[in-house]
Design a protein around this nucleic acid. Sequence first.
DNA 1: CCTTAATGGACAT
DNA 2: TGTCCCTTAAGGT
Length: 310
Amino acid sequence: MPEGHSIHRLARQFTDVFAGQSLRVSSPQGRFDAGARLLDGQVLHGARAHGKQLLLDFGAGEDVQRVLRVHLGLYGAFSFGGDETFRGASSIGAPRRMGETDTFEAQGQGPDAGPAIAYTGPPEPVGQVRVRLSSDHGWADLRGPSVCEVLTPAEAGAVVDRLGPDPLVPGTGAEEFLQRVSGRGVALGQLLMDQAVLAGVGNIYRAESLFRQGLDPWLPGRRLSRPDGTALWEDLVRLMNDGVREGRIITTRLEHRGSVDEQGEPAPVWPDNAHYVYQRDGLGCRVCGTDVRMAQMQARKLYWCPACQS
DNA sequence: CCTTAATGGACAT
DNA sequence: TGTCCCTTAAGGT
């Protein structure tokens, strides 16, 4: 999936294109008919994210009355389209291994479109569209989520309360993270994937942040030193904010990327030099040359360099 | 063309 | 431990 950075981009995008507007909400697939009826016609006050949870706040008046909670899971995704106010609203979700696609669908747009044509409404739904949100200016379709439900504000609050600190939410600190890791006999590689310990980190940020900090994925939480834990948290804050800005996960430092051109300018980050260890098993470590290894950890693939991370 | 694996996690068994 | 969600790109034939 979309790790936390993608969900925060989604929240920003929903706020940009829909906030303050009354939305039509439907379920072309039919599986979300009851929920759609609860939201149809209400105003979207705003969108927010905590970890991998996307929360859309709706209300008929000033107060938030209903919250649409979406979890994309492994392969859920949103696609967007509409008039010029939707320009730049890209599709976000999984799988997006090469970065999020830029499938903006507009009517009367583009360099060769000539005079702008008025937006005439969303297209016929394609595939299994669980929910469609639609305004006078454009639409958003959700396919393949693992969760899509309507909650009360209190229920939504309870969902967020169950989660650990999110490096992308300002105001949460290293301290909360350290507290949840300290004293635990569980391996660091497992703790980083536990959303109650740290919200928003997925399989790529797990592997890459442990590599960057030179930490052994099997180190029990209780044996993580305070300085190492603080550095790990701070690196995640940096990496994930980069991810929000770039729309993809890039963790290699310039000097390990082999990507400076004749003028000394950074060359584009190709898909195959964006990561240190993720999906690089059998290849040489970018730093020391040792073969990168892979093992299953909690039913997910863990990648690490046995020399750099010990 | 067909098969497989993929950034997740809830739930059943 | 297995199943679902039921998408999509990559890789093999």
